[in-house]
């Protein structure tokens, strides 16, 4: 049972993390190649506080706020630079984050922070907390997608200039998307710190940022169900394909490439096409 609990917790944290990026990239159309930095801010905030024996339930909101504040700063950057320039700027953010953390003694430097104590919830309780948080944010995402806010995001993702002309306060909504997305990533980070009871600079780098973007893209950009499914599967895929052992990463990257090459709109796109075929019959 312990293995299943660990697996489910890992999946729930990944789902929450991927959905948080989906909010920014999928809904609002702002690409980010550095989303792991915000998870990192949350995780480091949480780790430092939990080492000081502060309760997890108090730690999570604080981690979310810290990540959200950094997200607001990067959101301001997104008002200056667009598209590919924004992609590289956010990539810069993750390298800056890792570079700064590495040099800080109080954050454990290269070694990171280990020996975080388990929360009072126990393993099962903690798993439930992760699942509930992921579920709540998924519900919130679905709600936003169907509301007027979803239409506003769609319009911004499609064409910022036209949205501006239509009288949409583009800057405000972009900042909103960044703050919500990054604060949620911070929450996922706090859960990560509690789950692994260790945080290190290598856990929140460029590679992790790409992995989470891969989850969103494989699921189907903007599709809540697709992203949830892809995040759940991809997060444990390396464990599931243990049998290919030495070729694990090769298989993973080949799958990712084939997905982009043959179904660029992700799993959601495949499902949509299948549904259409059934309906047209």
């Amino acid at each position: 049972m312990a293995y299943e609990i660990t697996l489910l917790t890992t999946m729930a944290i990944s789902v929450l993390f991927a959905l948080s990026l989906n909010f920014i990239t999928g809904f609002c159309g702002q690409i980010s190649l550095g989303h792991a930095a915000f998870m990192g801010v949350g995780a480091y905030t949480a780790a430092t506080m939990m080492k000081a024996s502060i309760s997890l339930l108090f730690v999570i909101p604080v981690a979310a706020v810290f990540a959200g504040v950094l997200g607001l700063l990067v959101g301001f950057a997104s008002l200056r630079v667009r598209h590919d320039f924004l992609a590289i700027t956010t990539m810069g953010v993750v390298f800056l984050f890792v570079g700064v953390v590495r040099q800080q003694e109080f954050l454990g430097g290269e070694i990171g922070i280990s020996g975080i104590q388990q929360s009072v919830l126990g393993r099962t309780g903690f798993m439930l907390l992760c699942v509930v948080l992921a579920g709540v944010f998924a519900g919130f995402s679905l709600l936003v997608k169907r509301s007027w806010l979803g239409f506003v995001f769609d319009s911004i993702a499609d064409n910022e200039d036209v949205s501006q002309v239509l009288g949409i306060d583009v800057a405000k909504y972009k900042l909103f998307a960044f703050v919500v997305g990054t604060a949620t990533a911070g929450t996922a980070g706090a859960l990560y710190a509690q789950h692994y009871r260790f945080v290190g600079p290598d856990s929140f780098g460029f590679v992790e940022s790409i992995s989470v973007l891969a989850m969103v893209v494989v699921g189907g950009i903007g599709s809540v169900w697709g992203v949830m499914f892809a995040a759940a599967v991809l997060s444990v895929l390396p464990l599931l394909i243990q049998f290919v052992d030495d070729y694990k990463i090769l298989v993973y990257s080949a799958l990712l490439f084939s997905m982009m090459r043959f179904s660029p709109d992700g799993l959601a796109g495949i499902v949509q096409r299948l549904l259409n075929r059934v309906r047209n019959r």
Binding site: A87, I210, A214, V217, I249, S253, L256, F257, M260, R261
Partner: peptide, 20 residues
Amino acid sequence: KPPFIALIASIALFIAAEEL
């Protein structure tokens, strides 16, 4: 396709090549 599709495909190619 949208530019990030090619970007992700490119990253996947790069990882695959490193492994090869």
